[in-house]
C-alpha cells in the first residue's frame, strides 16, 4: 500500500511540476544568488494573482469536462465596461462596489456561455471560441477602444493597499498587495465548493461521465450552468484586479493569455477529458508558467526561447502521464 502510494506520488503531475520548479529555483540561485529573495518572491506573487484566478476558473471548466477559451475576453470586457460605467455614473464609488459590478458583469457573460453549452448543447470549445470574438468585438466596437489611465480614485486606491511592505536587509524594496488576498479567497472558496458541497461532487461526476451523472440523478444542467457563471464571475474579478494593479483600463490587454492559462492548468494535472484536477496542481502550474515568463533569463536561457520552453513543458507535462496511461492499458490488455 505504502509503495503504491509512493509510486502514485512519483507519477503525479504535481510532483513533476514541483520538481521542475525546485530545479529551476536552484539553477537560478546558482547563477544569481540574489534570485532567492523576498523581493523576487513578492514580485512573482504579484505577477501570479491575475493568471492564478483565471487558472482556477479554467480548472473548474476542465473538471466539468468542458473547455473555456473565452474567459480572458470576459475579464477584459468586465474590467473595461465597469471602469467606463463607474467613471460615467459615480467616479467615487467604493472599490468593493466596483469589484462587485465587474464580478456581476463577468457572471452574466459566463451565463451566455452557459446558455449555449447547457441549453443548445453545443461543444464547449466552439461556443467559447465564438463568444471570445463576440465579447471582444462588442467591447471594442460599442464600448470603447481607448486606453483609460484616469481610473476611478478608489481603483487606484486598491492598488496601493498593501498587506505588508518594507525593505530587505540587502536594501531592495518589497510589497505584498491586497490583491494577493483575492487569489487566496478564490482558492479557498473553490476548494470549499469542489470538496465540501454536493455541487462540487456533481461537477466531478459530470466530468467523469456525463451519462452516469445524469442516471444517478445529478442535476447536470444546473451544475454545468453554475460552472460557466462561476468562471465568468472569477474572470470579472481577475479583470478588475488586472486593471487596478496595472493602473490602466486597456481593452486590448489579457486576450491572448488564455492558452498560457490553460497550459498552466494542464501542467498541474487537470485532464482535458474531465473529472480530474487539483488546486495544488493548478497553483504549481501557475507558479511554473510565471517563473518561466519572468525569470527564464536568470537560468541562462535567452527570453526568445520562452515559447519553446513553455511548449516543451506542456508536451512533457501532458505527454508523460498520457504515455504511462497508454503503456498501462497495453499491459493490462
Amino acid at each position: 500500500m505504502n509503495r503504491l502510494s509512493l509510486k502514485n506520488l512519483a507519477t503525479r503531475n504535481e510532483t513533476l511540476v514541483a520538481v521542475v520548479i525546485v530545479a529551476f529555483c536552484l539553477l537560478a540561485t546558482f547563477s544569481d544568488p540574489l534570485f532567492l529573495s523576498v523581493t523576487t518572491l513578492t514580485d512573482l506573487m504579484r505577477a501570479s494573482v491575475v493568471i492564478g484566478i483565471l487558472a482556477v476558473a479554467a480548472m473548474m471548466v476542465l473538471i466539468s469536462g468542458g473547455i473555456d477559451v473565452s474567459f480572458t475576453a470576459i475579464a477584459v470586457f468586465a474590467m473595461y465596461s465597469t471602469t467606463v460605467l463607474t467613471l460615467a455614473v459615480m467616479p467615487d464609488m467604493p472599490w468593493y462596489f466596483i469589484f462587485a459590478i465587474s464580478i456581476g458583469i463577468g457572471a452574466c457573460l459566463g451565463a451566455i456561455n452557459g446558455f449555449f453549452v447547457v441549453i443548445c448543447r453545443l461543444p464547449t470549445l466552439i461556443v467559447t471560441l465564438g463568444t471570445l470574438s463576440v465579447f471582444r468585438g462588442f467591447l471594442l466596437t460599442f464600448i470603447g477602444s481607448q486606453r483609460i489611465s484616469a481610473l476611478p480614485p478608489e481603483m487606484r486606491g486598491f492598488s496601493r493597499m498593501m498587506i505588508a511592505r518594507g525593505t530587505t536587509e540587502a536594501g531592495s524594496f518589497y510589497a505584498i498587495p491586497w490583491a494577493v488576498a483575492a487569489l487566496v479567497i478564490v482558492v479557498l472558496l473553490t476548494l470549499f465548493i469542489l470538496h465540501k458541497t454536493m455541487l462540487g461532487r456533481s461537477i466531478f461526476a459530470i466530468g467523469g461521465s456525463l451519462e452516469s451523472a445524469r442516471r444517478i440523478g445529478i442535476n447536470v444542467r444546473g451544475a454545468q450552468f453554475f460552472v460557466y457563471c462561476y468562471v465568468g464571475a472569477l474572470a470579472g474579478l481577475a479583470g478588475i484586479i488586472h486593471g487596478a494593479m496595472g493602473r490602466m483600463a486597456d481593452p486590448f490587454s489579457l486576450v491572448g493569455l488564455e492558452l498560457s492559462v490553460i497550459a498552466a492548468v494542464v501542467l498541474g494535472g487537470a485532464r482535458l477529458i474531465g473529472g480530474y484536477g487539483t488546486l495544488t496542481g493548478t497553483l504549481l502550474g501557475v507558479s511554473l508558467i510565471v517563473l518561466v515568463e519572468n525569470s527564464l533569463i536568470v537560468v541562462g536561457i535567452p527570453s526568445t526561447w520562452q515559447f519553446v520552453t513553455i511548449g516543451l513543458l506542456i508536451l512533457l507535462g501532458t505527454g508523460l502521464p498520457a504515455w504511462q496511461a497508454k503503456r498501462a492499458a497495453a499491459k493490462s490488455a
Binding site: L259, V266, L272, T304, F307, V308, L315, W323
Partner: peptide, 23 residues
C-alpha cells in the same frame, strides 16, 4: 504514439514551432 489529446499536443507543439521561429 504517445496518446496525447490533440488539443494539448498541438497547443504545445504550436508554441514550440512559434518559439523556434522567434529564436
Amino acid at each position: 504514439r504517445l496518446g496525447l489529446p490533440p488539443i494539448l499536443a498541438t497547443l504545445g507543439s504550436g508554441l514550440v514551432f512559434t518559439g523556434i521561429a522567434v529564436a
